[in-house]
């Protein structure tokens, strides 16, 4: 800026500055408002269309029905919900231990060099399109598991959910690792100073201190698993099957249809607008929305509780 007439400069630039600041303010506000607007419109649209569905189909039988055969007009959502739960549970069993262990390795054990190789590799894993995972599950994983002696159908929830688990590992590991790396070294030193081994420091000091971040990573990853579509459509099949609690392996080894897969089905089938088959998509969508929404709420509650306890 010039050093000419200080006074004139002072007022002129102030005018320009204030106008610019105002512009930034509104620009930023507009973007923030837009995201809220989009979210609200999505929920409203879902709700309106779901209402159209529930005019034609009894809500109670929708939420408690154990049979889903949309082409025949049977709309019981439980087979879809339980298939989603099965996929989520199995993917959690795969992703949580591996993802957490990878995070501990990266944060506590890996040398700087190793970390500089592994972290980008994990990020690449996170960037692979899900259609590739779906393909891998169908074309490689299912045949391998069959060769390994499992009596799997061509389409089955086991392969699909293992692959979903693999897909969400980077999410668990990278968010958990961030949380663990944020634990101050002074706490590690306190642990070592008391004669703890590296493993004891990792599990007894670092993980507890990072627990709220680690937990958030689980919830985020599981929300992702619940909403995952492509892998379960490609490898899990399209046949709705109610969870048989006495024999859950039957559900794993055979094809199943998750909520997301059923929505894809509703769009891709010949069902045209106006039919309950088509509108069922929105009812499922709304259900899905509430499931993930309550999971996020839960995770916030849990994170807040641990934060209180630990900070």
């Amino acid at each position: 800026m010039g050093n000419e007439s200080f006074d004139a400069d002072l007022t002129r630039s102030a005018h320009g500055q204030i106008a610019k600041e105002r512009l930034y303010h509104w620009l930023l506000f507009f973007c923030a408002a837009l995201t809220v607007f989009v979210t609200v419109s999505i929920v409203v649209t879902l709700a309106v269309d779901a209402v159209a569905f529930f005019r034609q189909v009894d809500a109670l039988s929708f939420f408690t029905g154990t049979e889903w055969e949309s082409s025949r007009g049977t709309f019981g959502v439980l087979p879809l919900v339980t298939a989603t739960l099965v996929v989520t549970a199995v993917s959690a069993i795969v992703a949580i231990p591996i993802g957490t262990a990878a995070a501990v390795y990266l944060s506590e054990y890996a040398s700087d060099r190793m970390r500089s190789v592994l972290k980008p590799a994990l990020e690449i894993l996170a960037g692979i399109p899900t259609v590739v995972y779906g393909y891998l599950a169908l074309v490689y994983l299912t045949p391998w598991l069959r060769k390994g002696g499992l009596d799997l159908s061509m389409f089955n929830l086991l392969s699909a959910s293992i692959m979903v688990g693999i897909m969400i590992i980077p999410m668990v590991s990278s968010i958990s690792e961030d949380a663990m790396s944020a634990v101050p070294d002074s706490l590690r030193e306190a642990g070592y100073g008391l004669g703890a081994t590296k493993f004891e420091v990792s599990t007894g000091v670092v993980i507890p201190a990072a627990v709220s971040g680690i937990f958030s990573s689980y919830i985020l990853a599981l929300s992702r698993a619940i909403g995952e579509t492509m892998i379960v459509v490609m490898a899990g099949g399209m046949q709705a099957r109610m969870l048989d609690l006495t024999n859950p392996f039957a559900n794993l080894f055979n094809s199943g249809q998750t909520m997301t897969a059923a929505m894809v089905h509703a769009v891709t089938s010949d069902a045209t607008g106006g039919t309950p088959e088509f509108y069922s998509m929105f009812a499922i969508g709304l259900t899905l929305f509430f499931v993930t929404f309550s999971m996020n709420l839960l995770s916030n509650r849990i994170a807040a509780r641990y934060r209180e306890e630990y900070q």
Partner: peptide, 15 residues
């Protein structure tokens, strides 16, 4: 380190 305890410059209790 089990025989030699240590106290650090700034207090560092575990959470």
């Amino acid at each position: 380190r089990r025989k030699i305890g240590m106290v650090f410059q700034s207090p560092n209790p575990f959470p």
